[in-house]
């Protein structure tokens, strides 16, 4: 891509990636969550691939690292679901505990990050999973199509 696209991508990508992480971390008090934030983060990776080419992005973002991140997110999610098994599968056992345990009263409030029980942790797990999954899909498809272009 041209120099203008590369410069703009360099400027914008950190902001996009940071915004994706913010959407993941604040999923339980503001609009958003693991899926949406992960999609935002993966769109930042897609911008990098468009601007610099899949070959250069692959040098620091390997496919097997992404697979490991995705499996780790899945394991964390399933583990959190099993951790509540003393009461029920997917029971929110952290409400009222010292970790993410504040319980707000019914009605509008300004928002407290230390609430939600297992929901913020599950947002992080699903966010890892979606970041890795969508980035891997975009990266692999871009690599395949660029190789195809070189062959012909």
């Amino acid at each position: 891509m041209s120099k203008i696209v590369r410069t703009v991508a360099k400027l914008l990508t950190p902001a996009i990636l940071l915004f994706g992480l913010y959407v993941i971390m604040h999923g339980h008090i503001t609009p958003g969550g693991g899926f949406q934030g992960g999609a935002v983060f993966a769109s930042g990776v897609a911008l990098l691939i468009v601007a610099f080419g899949a070959g250069r992005v692959e040098q620091f973002l390997k496919e097997h690292q992404l697979s490991m991140l995705e499996s780790g997110g899945g394991l964390l999610f399933i583990g959190l679901a099993f951790a509540g098994l003393a009461t029920a599968f997917f029971y929110n056992f952290l409400v009222g505990s010292p970790i993410f345990g504040h319980v707000p009263a019914f009605g509008p409030n300004p928002g407290d990050i230390w609430t939600g029980g297992t929901i913020p942790l599950m947002n992080v797990a699903v966010g890892m999973k979606v970041i890795a999954g969508l980035s891997a899909i975009v990266l692999v498809m871009a690599l395949a199509s660029s190789k195809q272009g070189e062959d012909e």
Binding site: F90, F100, P104, F106, G116, G117, M122
Partner: peptide
């Protein structure tokens, strides 16, 4: 809000009430 602690009711449904 009392049962899951989350302000975002959609997150509460996605990750708690309908976790399956």
């Amino acid at each position: 809000q009392q049962e899951t602690g989350a302000n975002n009711a959609v997150s509460a449904v996605v990750f708690d009430y309908r976790g399956y």
